[in-house]
Write a protein that binds this DNA or RNA. Structure first.
Lengths: 204, 204
DNA sequence: AAATTGTTTAACTACTTGGTCAAAATTAGA
DNA sequence: TCTAATTTTGACCAAGTAGTTAAACAATTT
């Protein structure tokens, strides 16, 4: 069962590396910690992924593909804009709440190495133009207010991502360190973000 | 001139440390690099700030106080909400564009050490309650739509901060790596963010 | 001007870290 | 079963790291 065992080891490494890297970042992560979390020897890490950088790149690529995902679903669906937006925001917040360190990880590491980011973006199937085109269509049909579609996209992402990236700050400042209260707040935001955006852009 | 020289050295260290820490974070920063950038010996760092952690804490405190600043100005001014918001967003984006690594730095490090963050927040003069009270007053006066004031505050911050934290991503995805085009876009956002929010909350 | 105090440095240390290597253990193929 | 390839490991290494120390230098005090 060479095949299965190999996959197991490699998968264990990838899982462990993802956990550690996302939490501590490239600089804060330790190969020993990743090995420990994977339950293997440190030398085995270097057997599968020759260097820390190569392992990190693999993780970043994998993780980055997660964070700009169902955006494209909005393009290829026939639902009205209100529904599209609602579905996207809801599923996106769900994803982020399951991986609360993910936004900070991506933001930090994309600043550390923008060139690598560029490579990856080419690789993902993200076509901002198609999203913009979809927005423009809504504007020309008079359903939403005319504006730079890039602004609209960034606003949607910022409203969704920021409150999770700034989780610790909000938990302390708004909820006296009550983490459950914070979670409830974010849960409610699935609806309020959409409302906030729609109030701003919908033409009644 | 003991006084002046001491101040100079300490100030040079603080400046250098701020530059390096903001760019590389606690884990990525090197004491040697800070010493080099300050133009002094590494041992002198430890003479003024005994450990890396103490130096980092001093920087984080200093820098964090910058990032939640003129928020309170909104509370103590008599301008109409439209003006308050416009002035805040404009000056805030100015601040962030002058220090584009600042948002990511704060976000990353607040996740690394939330306890220390809590201590600092007590120290700053930020009174979220007063901001919320100001929002509520506008709501009760029927000038803006009723909503959770925490949502409103987070939305303002998210719309302002996120596009700068995600600068590299946007520069690549929206502007084919044209950094000037990105800057122009952000410059324009000073206005469009305010418009976007006001369209959402103002009752006409 | 001598002594005391505060500042700065070069050299050093103890330890951590990513990475290597040769040998052991496991698996696959004949 | 015997052999060859693959996978896993413990021990090791060189480079880099935060932090120390003792001595040189500068400033202040007496």
């Amino acid at each position: 069962m060479n095949e299965i065992k190999k996959d197991n080891a490699e998968e264990k490494i990838l899982n462990a590396a993802q956990n550690v890297f996302i939490k501590k970042g490239m600089d804060g992560a330790r190969m020993q910690e990743i090995a420990d979390e994977a339950g293997i020897n440190k030398a085995l890490l270097h057997y599968y992924f020759r260097t820390k950088e190569k392992l990190f790149d693999a993780i970043f690529k994998k993780v980055f593909s997660k964070i700009l995902p169902n955006l494209m679903d909005m393009v290829y669906s026939d639902l009205p804009i209100e529904k599209k937006l609602g579905i996207f925001v809801e599923s996106y917040i769900d994803l982020l709440m399951k991986n609360p360190f993910l936004p900070t990880f991506i933001l930090k590491e994309m600043n550390r190495n923008p060139d690598f980011l560029a490579k990856i973006i080419k690789g993902t199937g993200i076509q901002p133009d198609k999203i913009f085109a979809m927005f423009k269509k809504e504007m020309e049909a008079g359903r939403i207010r005319k504006m730079d579609p890039r602004d609209l996209l960034v606003n949607i992402l910022g409203l969704s991502i920021f409150p999770i990236a700034a989780g610790p700050l909000m938990t302390i400042m708004f909820f006296e360190n009550d983490k459950e209260a914070y979670k409830t707040f974010i849960e409610r935001r699935k609806k309020t973000i959409t409302e906030f955006i729609l109030h701003s852009i919908l033409i009644k």
